[in-house]
């Protein structure tokens, strides 16, 4: 379950990384992001990525690091494909990802 939360967080982090880039933001929302917005996305992305790493490592140092590399690969692949073929899906991801991460977290504490 913790690894699932970490995977969702990682996906969220790379979504934020993608939205921090002007061409991808434009493909998703149709407008250019201003610099502060890009910077905010970038900071959020790094925080989430560090959280992902922390969560994985807290489970097991070696195994967690391997999971972390795999999760990053999965996240980049998914985003690469979505951005290339269905960029507007990222708009849904923007709400869907935090919601599922929250749901998974709540379920794991039960």
């Amino acid at each position: 379950m913790m690894y699932l939360i970490a995977t969702l967080l990682c996906l969220g982090s790379f979504t934020a990384f993608a939205l921090a880039k002007t061409p991808h933001y434009k493909a998703v929302y149709g407008t250019r992001p201003d610099q502060t917005l890009s910077q905010r996305y970038l900071i959020t992305a790094w925080i989430m990525l560090l959280l992902t790493l922390g969560l994985n490592i807290s489970q097991a140092v070696g195994y967690g690091s391997l999971m972390f590399c795999g999760q990053m690969a999965l996240a980049v692949l998914l985003l690469g494909v979505i951005l290339a073929f269905r960029p507007h899906w990222v708009r849904s991801l923007f709400y869907l990802l935090p919601a599922t991460t929250l749901l998974a977290t709540v379920l794991s504490t039960l």
């Binding site: 990384f17 980049v76 494909v81 951005l83 290339a84």
Partner: peptide
């Protein structure tokens, strides 16, 4: 260009595919 994959652009698309598959993993 981490997530960059432009389709239908000849060898440019192949380069994007090559870069994406290398960088993601």
């Amino acid at each position: 260009d981490m997530f960059q994959f432009r389709t239908g652009k000849g060898s440019r698309s192949w380069l994007d595919g090559h870069n994406l598959s290398s960088v993601l993993a």
